[in-house]
């Protein structure tokens, strides 16, 4: 198995290389450059030109790419044009928040979805199940930003139970327990929004898996051994139904991290999603390219983790 993992990791190199070319080319195709925004009728074109020259934007595309990729390989994605600090450190600050939010969301998702999905599947067509199905339809139908805004309005502005922006209050000492709790407090609204959207898919998936597993022959075998129904569920049906979900955790996390754009923007949560949107707005190439590269790496790793998990939980799948 480790051989396969190593091979997969090695294969990532050419994949990332191709990705880097694409990203770079797309970034260059975007109209304007970081200095376009500085232009006012009073600006001396020479100043802009000088800035461009200094930033290396007048070199040939190949030279620019070569410079960028060599530095990127060393972990240096340049300096943010707008923030004037190293891209790696600005992403570093934000990434922690996003990972924190994603983990929180995924835990909340599973805490809600696992019992609900399993029970809905077990008691198919019961009133509980029908409510769950309706809930699923509704949350499928509601777009992220609508739900986010509603939650923000209700719990943030009307009831004022939770903060409406930021990831931590100013003035709380970093590293203390209070700091951690404060961070958690800020997570609840965005996390809840993400979780509500995530639960629908997971519940639906699990419910179908359980309904499917109920009909399997091995369930009949277990019943014919004299295993009580509740034990048949816990020993056979639930375990088998959770299989696809377990192996999907990796991809789920990837989707959350790279899909955090809406939620972070709505809740003004300083994560990489919000950073991404801001950077696009300000044409901050160095940040955009670095973020897209990061999403690429995360996706590749996520797929690999999913495959590894799959082979761990399902004896029929072997990674080699």
């Amino acid at each position: 198995m480790w051989k396969t993992v190593l091979r997969r990791v090695l294969f990532m190199i050419p994949q990332l290389f191709i990705l880097s070319i694409l990203i770079f080319a797309l970034a260059k195709l975007m109209p304007g450059d970081p200095f376009t925004g500085l232009i006012t009728p009073d600006t001396d074109p020479k100043t802009i030109e000088a800035l461009r020259e200094a930033a290396g934007l007048n070199d040939s595309i190949l030279v620019q790419y070569g410079r960028w990729i060599t530095n990127a390989f060393k972990g240096d994605f340049g300096v943010s044009y707008t923030h004037k600090i190293a891209v790696s450190s600005i992403i570093g600050q934000r990434a922690g928040n996003t990972v924190f939010l994603s983990l929180f969301t995924i835990i909340m998702t599973y805490v809600i979805a696992l019992p609900v999905g399993l029970l809905a599947g077990r008691y198919q067509n019961s009133i509980f199940d029908k409510i769950v199905v309706i809930y699923n339809y509704i949350s499928y139908a509601v777009p992220t930003f609508v739900l986010g805004l509603v939650i923000l309005f209700l719990f943030g502005y009307q009831l004022q139970w939770f903060p409406t922006s930021g990831s931590v209050d100013v003035g709380v000492t970093s590293g203390t327990f209070a700091y951690f709790m404060n961070k958690l407090y800020h997570l609840i609204l965005p996390g809840l929004t993400g979780a509500i959207l995530g639960t629908a898919t997971t519940i639906q998936y699990l419910r179908n898996e359980v309904i499917d597993a109920k009909q399997q022959d091995f369930v009949k075998t277990a019943r014919s051994k004299g295993v009580p129904v509740s034990k048949v569920y816990s020993r056979h049906i639930f375990r088998n139904s959770m299989l696809p979900i377990t192996s999907n955790i990796g991809m789920e996390l990837v989707a959350l991290i790279s899909g955090s754009i809406f939620i972070e923007t709505i809740f003004a949560y300083p994560g990489i999603g919000q950073l991404f949107i801001q950077s696009i707005g300000s044409r901050d190439y160095s940040v955009i390219t670095a973020l897209v590269m990061l999403f690429g790496v995360i996706t590749l790793i996520g797929t690999l983790v999913s495959d590894i998990l799959m082979s761990v939980v399902d004896p029929r799948i072997r990674l080699d």
Binding site: K220, S224, G226, V227, N240
Partner: peptide, 22 residues
């Protein structure tokens, strides 16, 4: 449940699907 398995055992047609794969 006290009878099933203990007093009456059962064998099914397709042993692959009748056994839990996990």
């Amino acid at each position: 449940n006290k009878i099933r398995g203990n007093d009456i055992g059962m064998i099914f047609q397709d042993p692959l699907s009748a056994l839990n794969p996990l």
